[in-house]
Design a protein around this nucleic acid. Sequence first.
RNA 1: GCGCCAGUAGCUCAGCUGGAUAGAGCGUCGGCCUCCGGAGCCGAAGGUCGUGGGUUCGAAUCCCGCCUGGCGCACCA
Length: 547
Amino acid sequence: MKRHQPLIDALARAARQLGASPVPEFKVEAPRDPAHGDAATNLALILAPLLGRKPRDVAQQLLQALELPPGYVKKVEIAGPGFINFFLAEAQLAGVLDEILAAGGHYGRSDAGRGLKVDVEFVSANPTGPLHVGHGRGAALGDALASLFEWTGHAVTREFYVNDAGVQIDKLARSLWARVQQQVGRAAELPEGGYQGQYLVELAQAALAREGRAFADLPPDEGVRRCRTIALLSQRAEQDEDLREFGVKFDVVFAESELYRERLIERALADLAAQGHTFEQDGALWLRTTAFGDDKDRVLRKSDGTYTYLLPDIAYHRAKHERGFARAIDVWGADHHGYVPRVRAALRALGLPDEFFHAEIVQLVRVMRAGEEVRFSKRTGEIVTLRELFQETGVDAARYFFLMRRGDSQLVFDVDLAKSQTEANPVFYVQMAHARMSGIFRVAAREPDGVSAAGVDLSVLAAPEEVELMNELAAFPGIVTRSAETYEPHRITGYLEGLARIAHAWYHKYRVLAEPEEAARLVLARAVRQVLANGLAILGIRAPDRM
RNA sequence: GCGCCAGUAGCUCAGCUGGAUAGAGCGUCGGCCUCCGGAGCCGAAGGUCGUGGGUUCGAAUCCCGCCUGGCGCACCA
């Protein structure tokens, strides 16, 4: 049942009695300021112009017509321009605690997604080098989004796409071959736009050590071919290991080469052509994406006969649809955002529904250390790798920092703050709140899960901080739903910081153990601990019992 | 030039399917340790919400113009 449903129903009935038919949409929500009660509605403000009366008069009449279940509210008042504020009875407020204890690790889950199959593709880094901090942000965000969809009742697949068939891999292979030659003292130059990172030097040394010096004397074609396999496997293995340690696990790793092997690319091309969406010009084959919302037409097959990247991507997304997904969500870096309209247009051309494809764009990450920006550039070989970052800050802090800003705002990652063990560090602050709640049970020598609300008088939880806590706890399921709907995990971090703040203040001001309110406060402490843990679980961050 | 994203406190950012006095953290200043963890808590100062219009009873939030920054505008990926 939706929160405050009895209130919503009663208000709607009252509105009908005043002659509003149909009843317009109105809100019942928790006011920002606790002094405005536990729930407030703008119904009178909405109704006033329709009824041609002043909002406060309408509010007055609504209250006269309002019939609520007995014992539901403690106090009702008309405030401001015509808001109606409700102060709920303690027993009503405390109902959320029963709910949380009963649901446990499921509190906040919903079936809003009705089992819809969703594919979340993220990271999808080219296998041409180590993962950097930008990939880390994509990894944290994609994983959290996937988790949010699970929490809202979707059937989720986490997917990684490997570009193992493009020209970048050729460059990588030839770069490695050049490094091999250099290792044996030959003057070889990296190819134009090749990969300059130190990791290829190390890989060349490892390859020579394993294959022997004869490896460097292979014919160039054969050597490059071998280098391609060596580089691909080694880069993929390293990326997988980084991701594993970062706490991200993929259900599917899909290789571009599979699209060729399965002839999905030719099929996509043939279907597009058969439907008359392609044309030839200047020796190339074009897709008429302008007919589907793009601002210019795009080349599918270049005049040299090779395909552009767009075509495999079309085939790939269509394959996702054919695999049964109702939604395909791609987490992409900001440098790819211009690519969205043409993919969308192409999928329209193939007749896929518009809501099938969603690209979530992640803006760039700047790393700050000791007040200065740490520069990184893949081209010059100087980079901040994801691994370096999370080894320094810890995985929890890194994930949290990547998630605490909206994806479409640029992120300044303060390494010193992420490492600090103080209240200034939000992830520490939230985890500390969980540890403190756990500490109460440790001192009481009780298992948190053994605490029950049965037979406990929860109406003694009447302190302002306690009312605020219960309202905050009750808001959690709505936050999860909204966060999933808007693709915004940062709503969860913001919520957790708010909940932690109230929890710390409550903990500091009131004792739990050896007080007359002990039984009720233990119930509250368990509920707070549970919701903190659930929120952290969505983000893939540990909820420690002690720090 | 065109497109996307952003511009909110000294700094980093929330708030954006319109709602009450625009919030948090950092930093600054000032309080609080017999007491479940002071690894914490409480308070103060600090804002023309880039800017100019518009819609509305009501705009940080919606619409339009302009300014600034990032990214993108390939027969690259």
